[in-house]
């Protein structure tokens, strides 16, 4: 029986964001935008969805008079990502 893939994570940009954040403690919005090569508008929407799902924390602050958005994966996000990878493995190696 295959586990269903988490619909929040099974989207190209949201999965890219969570995969980036899993490898770092926290990252600025500009860093994520640069690495995913997404548009600012699209990225903002997807980050908001991940935030609403409780997978990431978003902190908005000012740094040297410029707005700065910092994203960080939450423990729920880590659990969801691990479950997603486990489900993927099941799809890719169904005999195991």
């Amino acid at each position: 029986m295959f586990k269903e893939l988490d619909p929040i994570l099974h989207s190209q940009l949201r999965l890219a964001v969570v995969s980036l954040l899993i490898g770092v403690k926290e990252a600025e919005f500009t860093f994520i935008k640069e690495k995913t090569q997404a548009t600012a508008g699209n990225l903002s929407v997807q980050i908001q969805k991940l935030k609403e799902a409780g997978y990431i924390d978003v902190v908005k602050q000012f740094k040297d008079n410029y707005p700065q958005t910092i994203c960080k994966i939450t423990p729920e996000g880590v659990t969801a990502f691990e479950a997603y990878v486990a489900a993927l493995q099941q799809y890719l190696t169904p005999n195991q």
């Binding site: 999965l15 980036l20 490898g23 990252a27």
Partner: peptide
């Protein structure tokens, strides 16, 4: 990066690529 439905292989490739990019960024 445009939104599209991913296959399982594409998901895995994307995860690997992003983890490597995150590593290179720090």
């Amino acid at each position: 990066m445009a939104e599209k439905q991913l296959s399982e292989q594409e998901s895995l490739r994307l995860i690997t690529e992003m983890i490597q990019k995150a590593k290179a960024g720090v």
